[in-house]
Amino acid sequence: MRERRLTIWVALVFLLLVLLNLPAAKSLGIKNAVRTAIAPLQESVANGSSRLREGWATVRGLGGMAVENQRMSTELARLQSEVRDLKSLERENERLRGVLGFSSRASRDLIPAEVIARSRDGWWQTLRLNKGSDDGVEADQAVISVEGLVGRVASVSQKTADVLLLSDPTCNVAAQMLRSGAYGIVSGRGPQWDGSVICRMEFINKNIPVRPGDEVITSGLGGIFPRGLLIGYVDRITTDRSGLYQYADIISKADLGTLQYVFAVRGVSANAPYVQTLGEAAKE
């Protein structure tokens, strides 16, 4: 009896040691197989809960629909006028780029995806999407929402993709202030006590004035994130302890806690600017 028990323990320890020391590729293969197996269940539960939420929101919002409709009509008119202005600016920009001999801007291919799960382990800030390598999603692609940058694809299985959010301390983004042109690196600050999402832009030149409310976009210098994606706004500016740099707390434009639909940005070089509209991608 004692020998049998010992055998079980030895076998268990051996099995677990093998599992713990699997090569990265094999380990990822097993993880992807489990993720693919669970994805349909996760997707149907996510769809069900989203329908429930939408149904409840519809019931609650019935009274305010006329006001909401009025507000949206006004917003639509404003946006249509903005699009007209932007189109003329784009044409002018293209013409000037042609005159100066710059290459034409590449349009960007967006893969629409739905969020089916959020990481709840607290160590990492991740999302799971219902699109994977079968749909063209690849590791290290930028992920955006209608509002702005969300993060980057950390790992992909055939049917799902895990996105490392902007709020994760290991997600670093080469960034630039839109107004002043100052460069820096934006990284997440992890979960905050009040549930808010704060990132920090570091290594900003101390001689460049930065103001609260300044827009921060991706600079395209890091090689992963294309240039020109909106990250968020400056909340607070502090001088680095060494006095060589300043850093700024950034409030993310995208509400990372409530994301439902996002887009993976497919196959363009990081320096190509963002051109395809989200509306066009949504139509796909």
């Binding site: 599992l19 097993i30 993880k31 160590w123 990492w124």
Partner: peptide
């Protein structure tokens, strides 16, 4: 453990 580690970013087997 396998499912939990696979669904998160934890190294497999932990």
């Amino acid at each position: 453990g396998l499912i939990e580690d696979s669904l998160g970013q934890m190294p497999l087997g932990t």
